[in-house]
Computed example of a mutant assay.
Amino acid sequence: MTNDQRHGRRRRDRSYVTRLAGIVVSVLAVGGGFGAATSLVNAISGSFADLESRAYTTSGWSGAEIASTLLDSGWAWAGLAVAAGWLVTRTEESRPVALAQGAAAGVLALLAATAAYSIVDTIRSGGRFPWYESEVVRWFASVTFGGPLGCVGACVRRPGVIGLLARLTVPVGAAVQMVVLLPGRNEVIEAIGKTVVWMAAAVSIGFVVARFLLVRRRRSETVAKSP
Rank of each mutant, 00 (worst) to 15 (best):
L165D: 04
V176H: 01
S118P: 04
A154C: 11
L20M: 13
G193I: 04
G106W: 00
T57C: 08
L164F: 08
E187I: 09
G173A: 09
G184R: 05
R128P: 05
Y56D: 15
A115D: 14
L168M: 11
W75N: 06
M178G: 01
L182Y: 07
V179Q: 09
V136R: 15
F34E: 03
A64S: 13
A67V: 12
V180N: 10
G150T: 04
L20V: 10
R185A: 04
L108R: 06
L111D: 04
S45C: 11
R138W: 06
G106V: 07
L28S: 05
I23W: 13
A202C: 02
D4G: 06
V24S: 08
V82D: 06
A116N: 04
R128C: 02
V97W: 08
V203A: 10
A55C: 03
A105L: 12
F145R: 03
T38W: 11
G32A: 12
V27H: 01
G150F: 08
S125Y: 11
V170I: 07
G79N: 07
S226F: 12
M199Q: 03
P96K: 07
L40W: 08
G163V: 02
E221G: 09
F212V: 07
W61Y: 13
A201F: 10
G79I: 07
A29S: 14
V180G: 11
A21T: 10
S62G: 04
M199V: 11
R128E: 13
W198I: 15
L110I: 02
F212A: 13
I44L: 15
A21F: 10
S220M: 14
G79H: 05
E133M: 12
E93I: 06
P148H: 06
R11W: 10
Q101D: 09
I189L: 15
S59D: 14
S220V: 14
